[in-house]
Write a protein that binds this DNA or RNA. Structure first.
Length: 481
RNA sequence: CGGGGCAUGGCGCAGUUGGUAGCGUGCCUGCUUUGGGAGCAGGAGGUCCCGAGUUCGAGUCUCGGUGCCCCGACCA
């Protein structure tokens, strides 16, 4: 018997772990809370990186790299920042066998070390804006970890920009959260709600935090990306002033934004099923697997399979043939379904005689016949597009079916177990905290998208779900990862 | 940091009142197979987490460590 995965209905959390490990995406390491990202998992990250990196560059950003180690004094510069991050930092106290004069923090995020450089680089408004992104690893000493979703070390990208005006920084914050939304929806086939965080859910050191929130199959929300307006907080902490075009001195305005390997977790939990991973074609490094049925004239079957792979590759579709005789076709079907290859083509002597092949979709498990002629690459390409679209539509439908609007607190408590709950909030941190304490649900997002706002009449005044006081607007609640 | 659980071939597990360490799967060799995780035969692979103790004898009992996983509080 091969690996079996716990079903989602039996134990969602165990299903997730089983899937990650049996699809060979990641493995536990001997270091507490740290994981090994295996080639199958890393390939997804590389596809994500490629798409995001292109979008960043198209909007004028450049890549750079800053040190892994941050002097303790830097971390301590910004009050909220150190309060938020210091408790979960790994700290280096020795180097070269000697105790260090100043402790070095392994970066939990790089605002401080980057702003130490920006201070040196910025004198005039002519030096602005600075639009830098960094691909890096960061470390946060988490209490409890989960593969991809929360590990002590993780991979991410962090953009850090510097601007002459508050407005320009605000535009950047929105530009980047919009890119994240576009990426989530177009590449990950993952519908997300874009909007603002409440003050208590904000990034440590930010004036405003924007986020994209996604819904997983178990009804829990996952923050998939964030973009922060840092105001002048870090510029002030690092004494970073510039001369404006009017000749005045002013502090620089800052943003930072990031997504991490957590996106891989989001991808898994949004689309996959009890047979294993389901990958959107745009993030699959291998989109088509061709499985020859080796009987009769084996060489002829393999030759035909290779020919198909070759013609697909010529049309930009990454395809490969598994002609090994060590495993049966049935084994291969199951294995590549587990790995989430979007499309499988089965090809045997019977098919070749009839000039056709079988195509099996991973998302629906449907099998269809395709004709073996020059139109094949085009047909395959269309199926892949259909799969990509279907995954998005399916996830969007799921979200719609798991979003409810409530005005009664008892109903709220019940509904919040199943997905997003839209309700009126009086705008106070006290109410937010009480609700979290009683239900473990948090305010995920104050939506900023017109479509979403009008669909749920988010700006309609009403009565707070908890306090009964007047509420200016509705917000989106959920239990979160 | 609180509560629970686990530690035995690569992986998953069993191991009775303390008495020669086993099963499934995977791996290697060969043959037969191949349209939904193939069959037969042969084979390799173990400081039973670490340390002390009890005992003629400890995977098993006692004490002390360590590590990991799960459930909560913190978090992308």
């Amino acid at each position: 018997m091969a690996d079996t995965i716990t079903t989602r209905s039996k134990d969602y959390s165990q299903w997730y772990i089983d899937l990650v490990r049996s699809a060979k995406l990641a493995d536990y390491s001997d270091v507490r809370g740290c994981m090994v990202i295996r080639p199958n998992g890393y390939a997804i990250w590389e596809k994500m990186q490629a798409a995001l990196d292109r979008m960043f560059k198209e909007t004028g950003h450049v890549n750079a790299y800053f040190p892994l180690f941050i002097p303790e004094s830097y971390i301590a510069r910004e009050a909220e920042h150190i309060e938020g991050f210091a408790p979960e930092c790994a700290v280096v106290t020795h180097g070269g066998g000697e105790e260090l004069a100043e402790k070095l923090y392994v970066r939990p995020t790089s605002e401080t070390i980057i702003w130490a450089s920006y201070k040196k680089w910025i004198q005039s408004y002519r030096d602005l804006p600075i639009l830098i992104n960094q691909w890096a690893n960061v470390v946060r000493w988490e209490m409890r970890t989960r593969l991809f979703l929360r590990t002590s070390e993780f991979l991410w990208q962090e953009g850090h920009t510097a601007h002459a005006t508050k407005e320009e920084a605000a535009e950047e914050v929105l530009r980047m959260i919009s890119i994240y939304k576009k990426f989530a929806e177009e590449y990950m086939a993952l519908p997300v709600i874009m909007g603002k965080k409440t003050d208590s859910e904000k990034f440590a050191g930010a004036d405003e935090t924007y986020c994209i929130e996604a819904l997983m199959q178990d009804g829990k929300a996952l923050q998939a990306g964030t973009s922060h307006h840092l105001g002048q907080n870090f510029a002030k902490a690092f004494d970073c002033q510039f001369q404006t075009c009017e000749g005045r001195l002013d502090y620089v305005w800052a943003t930072s934004w990031g997504v991490s390997t957590r996106l891989i977790g989001a991808l898994i939990m949004a689309h996959s099923d009890d047979r294993g991973l389901v990958l959107p074609p745009k993030l699959a490094s291998r989109q088509v697997v061709i499985i020859p049925i080796l009987r009769g004239d084996k060489a002829a079957v393999i030759e035909q399979a290779e020919a198909i792979a070759c013609s697909l590759k010529k049309h930009g579709i990454p395809a490969f043939v598994d002609s090994s005789e060590q495993n049966s076709p049935g084994w291969k079907f199951a294995e590549y379904e587990l790995q989430g290859i979007p499309l499988r083509i089965e090809l045997g002597p019977r098919d070749i005689a009839e000039k056709k092949c079988i195509a099996a979709r991973r998302d629906t498990l449907e099998k269809t016949e395709l004709t073996l002629d020059d139109s094949l690459p085009l047909e395959v390409s269309e199926i892949l597009n259909t799969i990509q679209q279907n995954l998005y539509d399916r996830a969007l439908l799921f979200r719609a079916e798991h979003t409810v609007e409530v005005s009664d607190y008892e109903e709220f408590k019940h509904s919040v177990e199943n997905g997003f709950v839209i309700a009126h909030w009086d705008g106070t941190a006290e109410t937010e905290a009480k609700i979290k304490e009683e239900t473990k649900a948090t305010i995920r997002v104050l939506p900023e998208e017109d479509d979403y706002i009008s669909a749920y009449a988010m700006h309609e005044p009403g009565t707070c779900i908890y306090s009964g006081r007047p509420a200016a607007r509705k917000v989106v609640f959920a239990k979160a990862y």
